[in-house]
Design a binder for these strands. Structure first.
Length: 436
DNA sequence: TCTGGGGTCCTAGGACCC
DNA sequence: TCTGGGGTCCTAGGACCC
């Protein structure tokens, strides 16, 4: 048995904890560069704002409907997430943190009324952290996801489902006929693993609701689509195919990519940008104790704007597997020099570290180039360790690779974030002060 | 004027091997 | 009249997730 605990409108809820005046108002959180909506309060959803709606298209709602738009404050959301996860873990013996606002809890061995237990944990998260959540409970992860969706919808749209399913929904506790009714009332596109494309295909075959999908023969689904969808159907039928993953493997690739605040044309600016991205990717790489053997750099112009378009990428092999930000930044800069072409307005660039291996694996080699040894650290260099410790303690970018251009007063490629709230929980100067 | 960022899994097809 | 069979590895692209 599994539970899925999911924060409601998570980013918006985080902001509301520190600005209660936002309660009851339409609020959205914008993506990097204040580009588009990535989180919406219920009131904002009711205004018809879609996930991913470009800000310039909905901006008029600020005046017309009192919409509040905030720049993304990922430092805040990450910290609130940690707090929420630690309380959600109290629901059962095992936990898989699936995303910043969701975790699966394994309920094996948990006795008693699961719905009552769910409400207790939900109330605790709301009181201690301030984040409203919904909890779905079921025999498989896919069903728990569905139960969570039902718990949320039942709360937000009264009448859509039986009222007692709101907030905490245990599908395993429903009588068969009630379960069928609930599945029939749910669109097949709401199932975890059924995206826009497959949803459309299923509907063309007459499979409209979750109940229709549950009644399909898994082998038929496999023949008509693929094994992934077959697993989804089996899971919906109550047969577990996806295990709880409470000790995730290290990532197989690590990316750092950004859109620029404004178009960038100059090589120097692009080199600064990808040096910075490579250095940031290096931090993530060291955190999971891996080395990279290859690095991919890319850049492209904006498909949404007029003018000549260009999209290029190059793979840069590294001399030997490394986690050293200096070497990664250098490789990224080399790649950029190789692929750069003048005359284009670039809007995005990025670095992806691929072909990763554990840092514990060491390929020995003959010392054929002893004069280069000093520049090619073989172990995690003490410098990188010191750099990470200082940046952890005094803030990101306190110590950085020189080629990233942080000494320049204004970075040509910097991000636009005009509406960001303070880092209430992670920066001493930003901690709210209570006055009597 | 203006549209995010970071991942995973699966499959088909080509290269290559014996 | 006539061109083997079986296997692995790698890559690109598609679909999905939040």
């Amino acid at each position: 048995m599994y539970a899925l605990v999911d924060g409601n409108n998570f980013y918006v809820s985080c902001e509301r904890v520190f600005r209660p005046s936002l309660n009851g108002r339409p609020v959205i959180v914008l993506s990097n560069n204040d580009g588009c909506a990535i989180a919406r309060s219920n009131e904002a959803k009711d205004l018809g704002i879609c996930m991913g709606a470009p800000w310039f298209q909905i901006r008029h709602l600020e005046q017309q409907a009192g919409l509040v738009a905030l720049s993304a404050n990922f430092t805040l959301y990450g910290d609130m997430s940690d707090r929420m996860m630690s309380l959600a873990a109290g629901l059962g013996p095992t936990q898989e943190i699936y995303s910043i606002d969701e975790s699966f809890i394994g309920l094996n061995g948990v006795r008693g009324d699961l719905v009552a237990r769910g409400h207790k944990v939900r109330d605790r998260i709301l009181q201690w952290i301030g984040i409203p959540t919904c909890i779905g409970i079921a025999p498989t992860k896919t069903m728990a996801k569905l139960a969570n969706h039902i718990a949320k919808t039942a709360e937000r749209k009264p009448g859509s489902y039986p009222a007692e399913l709101a907030q905490v929904c245990n599908l395993a506790a429903l009588p068969a006929q009630d379960l069928d009714d609930v599945l029939q009332a749910t669109d097949v596109g709401d199932v975890w693993g059924v995206g826009r494309r497959i949803s459309k295909q299923l509907k063309e075959q007459g499979i409209q609701t979750v109940l229709d999908l549950v009644r399909m023969d898994p082998a038929t689904i496999r023949r008509g689509w693929n094994v992934t969808l077959e697993k989804t159907v089996k899971e919906l039928q109550g047969q577990p195919c996806v295990d709880l993953d409470d000790a995730p493997e290290p990532k197989q690739q690590i990316a750092c990519t950004r859109s620029f605040g404004q178009p960038v044309t100059k090589l120097e600016s692009l080199i600064e940008a990808v040096s910075e991205f490579a250095s940031r990717a290096g931090e993530k790489l060291r955190k999971q104790n891996s080395l990279a053997r290859e690095l991919l750099v890319f850049m492209h112009t904006s498909p949404h704007r007029q003018g000549p378009q260009l999209s290029r990428s190059v793979v840069v092999p590294l001399r030997r597997p490394t986690d050293d930000s200096r070497l990664l930044a250098g490789a990224a800069a080399d790649g950029m020099r190789r692929m750069y072409l003048a005359g284009y307005r670039f809007i995005k660039a990025g670095v992806i570290l691929v072909d990763l291996q554990p840092a514990s694996v060491q390929q020995q080699e003959l010392d054929l180039e002893p004069e280069q040894e000093a520049e090619m650290p073989r172990d995690r260099s003490r410098l990188m360790v010191a750099m990470d410790v200082i940046n952890q303690r005094y803030g990101k970018g306190t110590v950085h690779v020189g080629s990233t251009g942080q000494t320049v007063p204004v970075r040509a490629w910097g991000m636009k974030q005009e509406r960001r709230t303070p880092q209430y929980t992670t920066r001493l100067e930003d901690v709210p002060v209570v006055r009597a």
